[in-house]
Amino acid sequence: MKILVCISKTPDTTAKIAFVEGNTKFDETGVQWIINPYDEWYSLVKAIELKEKDPSVIIHLVTVGGADTEPIIRKALALGGDEAIRINNVTNDSLTVAQEISSIAKEGAYDLIFTGKETIDYNSASIGSMLCALLDINFISAATKLDLNGNTISVTREIEGGEEISETNLPAIVSCQKGMAEQRIPNMRGIMAARTKPLKVLEATVTQATTNIKQFSLPPTKSGVKLVDPANMDELVRLLKEEAKVI
């Protein structure tokens, strides 16, 4: 049983969002980088849980990015996973990322491919779905629970207003979100072990992007809060009706 876990590097959730070079580039000054929370807390930990149940499970991590993603990959390896692959392609184009991962996936003949539900920077939520088309295997998105029985998985996914449970044979792609697993903190033994785990670097093979970011912008700042006397809720109701017109 081989699992491929897709890992993305994202700015910390509290990072200041600002842009440089005429609003064409994210300002990385002082930004702390983390493993995309969906990739770390849910995909990776779920893969580790499967390996804890069955030690013959092999976990590979893959990331698409420059050398600056290596601390993130080492941190992921400290949590778990046997080895990592970095594809040296710096891009914002989801299709480029998916194409790079799909060639690794084809070669590695993985039974399960995990992605996070989305990344918290570009929020594209695209990689799992693109891999479904590129590899022509089943894809279950927004998964909150997964049980493995031999060559079959039973997966619970979120749907609007509830949940749906489905079954498929492997291989399959699953995008993971809250519920799938519980966040873990790497321990000292994991951190030491991560230093010597293999991290393979492969050169980029995809060069043609289908999209290009032209410009970033920030939302307009709110004009300021209007305070309402806590003893006068009739006034708040009036404002919501007549001024905001939302009720």
């Binding site: 920077d121 032209k214 410009q215």
Partner: peptide, 10 residues
């Protein structure tokens, strides 16, 4: 992008 903290024109 950035979970609603900014916009990108693509």
């Amino acid at each position: 992008v950035f979970s609603g903290k900014a916009f990108a024109s693509i």
